[in-house]
């Protein structure tokens, strides 16, 4: 317990000092040079900056609804996973052969461990009194290298993802856009025509009776597309997962597309 002055007085039987400090702000002349009191001068400036940020932020939230893709479906294996953007650089690193397979420990533990461990211990690794970045080239250089690496890996991950899966990127950003393509519930009593059952490469993803699997359910595909559109999708594929050119014979494509367009 702090030693109390012998003639200190208290409020009642409490330990709160009876001596009151007047609650007055000091004069501005008490602050040397261009120093400012925190309240209200500096806080006002901080809050003005915050107000500008808040307005921008609210505009963002209103103009870009948060994305929500389809409900998690462990069997939807055509979905290409992508972590949140600030983990992309770690994710991308694991794709490289020197940080994957037998070397995965390098990618998951050693490199991130050295990077974050080094950052954590920075005060003990960089012990000079010097604070200017130009006067401590090692620390500055390492940080700049790490920054370039992180930016490059993040860019590379996004770039690769958008190259191979152009549409899954759209559905990630466009919010509820993907709800429109949510698969219809499979109708187990539905039996596909022989023209469908001859197409084993289609059945692999869309199921024996078009009930869907990796690919969407096609039992009512005629509601969405007409025969020419279906034929076009069969020929050219549909991102992200469906390849084109699985059926080579044009007559067969036409026959299949006409059949599928009747499914409503």
């Amino acid at each position: 317990m702090a030693k109390q002055d012998k003639d200190a007085t208290f409020v009642g039987d409490s330990r709160v000092s009876a001596k009151r400090i007047p609650n007055i702000s000091p004069s501005y002349s008490d602050f040397p040079g261009k120093n400012e009191p925190f309240w209200p001068n500096f806080l006002l400036k901080e809050w003005m900056v915050a107000a500008v940020c808040l307005v921008g932020f609210l505009v963002l939230t209103v103009s870009h609804p948060s994305p929500l893709t389809d409900k998690a479906n462990p069997n939807d294996t055509s979905f290409v996973p992508l972590p949140d953007w600030y983990f992309l650089f770690l994710y991308q690193m694991l794709k490289y052969p020197w940080a994957a397979g037998d070397w995965v420990v390098l990618g998951t533990i050693i490199i991130p461990g050295i990077a974050f461990g080094g950052l954590m211990l920075a005060p003990w690794l960089d012990t000079s009194k010097e604070r200017r970045p130009s006067k401590r080239p090692v620390a500055t250089g390492l940080m700049l290298t790490a920054l370039v690496g992180v930016f490059y890996l993040t860019w590379a991950a996004d770039h690769e993802h958008s190259l191979s899966h152009p549409s899954s990127k759209d559905s990630g950003g466009a919010g509820h856009g993907s709800n429109a393509t949510a698969p219809a519930p499979a109708d187990t009593s539905f039996t596909a025509d022989a023209v469908w059952k001859a197409q084993t490469s289609c059945m692999g993803c869309h199921g024996k009776n078009m009930e869907g699997g990796m690919g969407p359910n096609l039992q009512k595909i005629g509601e969405k597309y007409d025969a020419t559109q279906i034929a076009d999708i069969i020929k050219n594929g549909k991102p992200p997962a469906m390849p084109g050119g699985m059926i080579k014979d044009d007559a067969e494509i036409t026959k299949l597309a006409e059949y599928m367009a009747t499914l409503k």
Partner: peptide, 28 residues
């Protein structure tokens, strides 16, 4: 039958160019 690439379903002997192999239609 789950393809180790992106998890599509492989099928036996469905690619005319490559007989007697498991073939994944998604990315060949």
């Amino acid at each position: 039958p789950i393809c180790k690439h992106l998890g599509c379903t492989v099928d036996w002997n469905t690619s005319p160019e490559h007989p007697d192999q498991y073939f994944c239609p998604c990315h060949l």
